[in-house]
Simulated assay, not measured.
Amino acid sequence: MKILVTGGLGYIGSHVVVELQNEGFEVVIIDNLSNSTIDVLKGIKAITNKQPIFEKLDLRDKISVTDFFNTHEDINSIIHFAASKAVGESVEKPLLYYENNLSPLVNILQELQNKKASNFIFSSSCTVYGQADTLPITESAPIKPAESPYGNTKQVGEEIIRDTCKVEPNLNAIALRYFNPIGAHETGNIGELPLGTPQNLVPFITQTGIGKRDQLSVFGNDYPTEDGTCIRDYIHVVDLAKAHVSALKRLVNQDNDYNFEIFNIGTGKGSSVLEVINAFEEVSNQKLNYKIVGRREGDVIAAYADTTKANTVLGWKSELNLKEALLSAWKWENK
C-alpha cells in the first residue's frame, strides 16, 4: 500500500517514514524543505535500505496539490505533518502559522473528496488542551482557548477535519494529540535538526552541550511546580512514530468505531525542565551552561497525558524512557 507522508523529511515525519517502510508500506514524501534538508533521505535509506519517493512541493499551492493527486491516483492514505511547529515563533508570526498550518490541510482534504475512500492521520498536539484543569489529561478534557497561534491552528485543524468527516462518510480520520517528542533513531542516522535557532528544549540542550550554543535559557523558575520550571510529557520520537503506524493500520483494517477519532500519544509521565537538564547531564557526562530567564509567552505550567485510550484501543504503548531518549538525541548531535 502506498502512503503519502507530508512533511516527511521533518523530524517526526522522517521517523514515521522509517517505521512505515519497516512495516512494508510504500511511502511517498512531500516536503518543501523549509525546516528540513534533502540529506534526510539518505538517513532514511541507510536505516531501511529503501529510498522513499520524494517530491518537493509547497502544499499551500492548490494547483500543485491537485496535480500531485492526479499523478498519484493510487494514494488514498495520508499522514499529514507539514506545518510550522514552534509556540514562541507563532506568537511573533501568527499570519505565517495560519497560512502554513491551515491552507495545506484544506487543499489536501478537498482532493480527498474526489476519492471513494480515504484515510487521514492528522498531526495534532496537546496544546489544544491549554492549561488543563486536571492531570493527567484525557481525550475528554475540555479544549481551552489556545495559548498561542500554533495551538490555535491545531484546534482549528481538528475542527476542519471533524466538519469534513460529517459530510464525507468515505473519509476516515484520526487526530493524534502528542505531547513533547524528543530523541532520535538509535542508529544516529536521523534526528531533530532545526534550521536556525532551535525552538524546542532538547535540541537546544544538545547544541549547548556540544558547544554550538553558548548558553541554554530556562524560561521561568517561578511556576507552581516542585522545582519552579514547566512540566511536560517527553516521548521518544520512535515510540511516537510507531503510534502513527498503529493508527494507520486501524484505519486500513477498518477497525475504527467512528470516522473521526482522537488519541493522546505520550508516556503518561511529566518531567520538569530542570529534570530534563539533570537527566541529560547524567547520560552525556556534560555539564550544561544554563541560565534562568523570564517566562515565555504561550507556555502552560504543566501537561502530561493519560494514555489509557491509546494503550487499549490502538494497542500501542510507549516503551522508551527519558534517559534513553536523551542519550539518542546526544548520539545524533555528536554524529
Rank of each mutant, 00 (worst) to 15 (best):
K166I: 10
P145Y: 11
P194F: 11
G188I: 04
T138G: 03
I210E: 14
Y150D: 07
Y150R: 05
N152V: 14
G188T: 03
P145V: 11
L135T: 08
V202C: 03
I143Y: 00
L201W: 08
T197D: 13
T208Y: 09
G157W: 03
T197I: 08
E158R: 06
D214H: 10
A184S: 10
G209R: 03
V167L: 07
R162K: 12
G196H: 03
R213I: 15
H185A: 05
T138I: 04
G151L: 08
E192Q: 13
N172P: 09
R177N: 01
I174R: 05
N200E: 15
T153H: 07
P203T: 06
N180T: 15
Q207L: 14
I210V: 13
E158C: 02
P169G: 00
H185N: 12
P194L: 08
Q199E: 13
E168R: 15
I210W: 12
I161D: 00
G157A: 07
T187V: 04
K154R: 03
G188K: 04
P145E: 09
N189M: 12
N189A: 13
Y178E: 05
K212T: 03
E139T: 00
L176N: 02
G183P: 14
I190S: 04
P145A: 14
N170Q: 09
I161Y: 00
L171R: 10
I137E: 00
A141T: 06
G157H: 05
L195M: 08
G183V: 09
G196Y: 09
A141N: 02
G183K: 10
N180Q: 12
G191W: 02
P169C: 01
K166H: 10
A173G: 10
F179G: 04
D214Q: 10
S148C: 04
T197Q: 11
G209M: 01
I182L: 06
E186V: 06
E147Q: 15
N152T: 10
P145K: 15
I143S: 01
T153F: 13
P142L: 15
A146G: 08
N200Y: 13
G157T: 02
I137P: 01
T187H: 02
P198S: 11
E168W: 13
A146V: 07
Q155D: 06
Q199F: 14
S140K: 01
C165M: 09
R177D: 01
T197A: 12
L176M: 08
A173Y: 03
P203Y: 10
Q207G: 08
I160K: 08
N200K: 15
P198Q: 08
F179S: 06
